[in-house]
Every structure is written in C-alpha cells, then in structure tokens.
Design a protein around this nucleic acid. Structure first.
Lengths: 174, 174
DNA sequence: CCTATGCCTTGATGTACATCAAGAAAAAAA
DNA sequence: TTTTTTTCTTGATGTACATCAAGGCATAGG
C-alpha cells in the first residue's frame, strides 16, 4: 500500500492552467515583509530575489532564469524575508503556494534546490573571492552575460570592487 | 483527481520499522566521497555533518540533535560531499533514502529545512561575527552547552579565536 | 595519581576584502 | 544627437577577521 501511494506520486503530474503575467525590467514583485506571497515560474526573462540589510546593502539570494521556480520559502501568513524583482522583461506563471502543492509537490525539484543551497553554504563558509567567482561561472555560465557584475558580486557576497580585482587577477594569470 | 493524490499524501504516514543502531562519540558514519549513503534520524544524542577544505580545515554544515534527519542531499550513485560523525553517544534510525521516500516524503520537513538554509545563506552573506553568534544562540539555545566552542565557530564560519573575542566583547557590553 | 591531550583565551602580526573617492566607458534617457 | 545615469575600474586607506604562538585549565587515559 505504500507502493500504491508511491506509484500515484510518480504519475505524470496533471498541469492545471496557471495565471500568466508579463512583467517589465525593474518591476518589484514582492517586498520583504509581504505575507502570503506568490510563487513564480519563469517562462522567459530573468528575476532575482534578494535582501537588504540594516546598512542598506543588497544581497542577492538567487537568480531566476527560464524554468526556475522563484519563491520565498515561508509559512502561510508569516512575513517573507526576500524582495523579488525583474532584471529582464519576463513572462511568468503565478501560483499561490497552495496551488503548487495541489499540483503535486515536485520532490526532485525540492531536492535539487536543497543540493544547490548546500553547495552554496559550503562555498560561503570555505571559499575566498576567487574560488567563489570560479564556482559561479561554472555553475551559471549563462547568467554572467545577462546581469551587471555588481549583481554577481552581490550574489557572491563580495563588493563590486573586489570582483573587479578578482577578474583582473584571473585574466592576468596566463 | 489531483485532490485524490493530495488526500493520500496527507494521510498519516505508515511508519515502517527502520533499523536502529547505537553509536559512540567519535564514530564516523559517512565520509566525503562515499556513495549511496544512508539517512539518519536522531533519536537521542548528537551528530554533526561537515566538510574538510583543501587546507584541512573543517566547516560544520549542520548539527543533528534529537529528532533531526541528518543526510547528505545527493543523487543515487554520486559521491556525497559531507562527513558525518558522532558528537554525543547516540541512538539512530537508519534508512536508505529510497526507504524514506517510500514512507512518504515529509514535505513540511523539507520546507522547514529549506527555510533554515535560506536564513543561513542570508546570514553568511550579510552578518559579521557578532551577529552570527547572536543569531546562533537564539536559534539553537540548547546546542551551545553541548558542543565545544570551536565547533560553533566552525558552524559560524569563523575561527575559535575570533569567537572567543566575540564572546568576550558581548559579556563586557554590560 | 600523574601525564597527556584537547580546549579556551590572549597578544602580536598578517591579510583579504571593504570602504571611500574619482575617473573612464558604456548604456539609457532625453 | 546630447545629456544623464549606470557600470566598471583603479588607487589609497581602513578594518574585521585569520594566522601564529604561547600559556592556563580542564578532562581523559594510563
């Protein structure tokens, strides 16, 4: 009977039609503190999620290119932690988190994301600026052409100046 | 019919009996590079998972106190990233990840973990040593008495010396 | 019990990266 | 186009934390 549940889970998901919206560069989809925020599936374009710390500095948490699910992981009715805005004009599917759950949670996607985050945490704890940058260009080779370097710096947890010097250093090495 | 699958998911899980083992302080349960590693549910005691970087330095990824699920998130047949060992004598339930999945994936637990990791990433990117420590003692008040400070330093991504000075500073501030 | 090992602290020094400031180049706006 | 705004770079300086070294306390093992 366990097997039964598993088999049902494993069936191709039935895709409910979700609301589709078009957004423009610069639009803000979610602010820190909003409640009952939506989840966005990126069909085309590019999103980013980020925080702003007490000193007013932005820290990019994640980029959301095509096919990514961008959402703040927080419980119903509790304020969210992240801002989400639009870096490149985008077409999005919008869903409440409940709708997504009803579609059937995508366990593989969740596990993949956990894996990504695990790798990021390990990187943040153990790598210097150069290694972080090299790791980034390997992991997201297609993002790098699409966003200003200062956003990549923000994602890596360093300043734009430091990133500039890292790139300089790397290009001079042979 | 979506509803059907959802209802089944939502039923109280049928708990298969899992293998139970007793392990002692210092035992190593998993090494970086192992494949098809197990998942451990901590019934009592305390585990930790960590990496060792190229300079031989340990970075604690996560503590595993009572009721935690400790596992490396990696795909079947690919080498894992983390070491797992025993900090306090422990009783564990051991399961292959497949067994866990058959029990029915615990979505809530997955989401909670994602949330924890999100908070950790944000913290690592934006906080200094003092804030990290204060965040830690708020989030894990019961862990702090149970592990040597150098492990907490390792979890926070700072050196034991730096942690010592942080604590000093905090106790002198009134 | 004594000895050894690990843990925590403190000081001196080093370093990676941040901050501040300014200018050139590129992109966006007008 | 010209103007304005952003982006990127480079240099000078500052700082948070790392590293290295040593000593005092515990705790554990023989």
């Amino acid at each position: 009977m366990i097997k039964l549940a598993y088999a049902i889970l494993d069936r191709p998901k039935i895709e409910l039609p979700l609301k589709k919206i078009t957004v423009k560069k610069g639009d803000i989809l979610q602010r820190k503190g909003d409640i009952n925020t939506k989840a966005y599936i990126v069909e085309s374009g590019l999103l980013r999620s980020y925080t702003i710390d007490d000193k007013g500095k932005e820290h990019i948490y994640m980029f959301g290119p095509e096919n990514w699910l961008v959402a703040d992981i927080c419980e119903t009715n509790t304020p969210c932690q992240l801002y989400i805005d639009v870096i490149e004009d985008a077409v999005l599917e919008v869903a409440s988190k409940e709708e997504l759950m009803e579609r059937g949670p995508d366990i593989d996607a969740l596990l993949r994301r956990l894996n990504t985050m695990q790798a990021r945490i390990i990187m943040l704890m153990s790598s210097n600026a150069i290694d972080r940058y090299e790791h980034f260009i390997q992991t997201y080779p297609n993002i790098i052409q699409r966003v200003p370097l200062k956003m990549i710096a923000s994602y890596l947890g360093i300043t734009p100046e430091a990133l500039s010097r890292v790139r300089n250093e790397l290009s001079h090495r042979k």
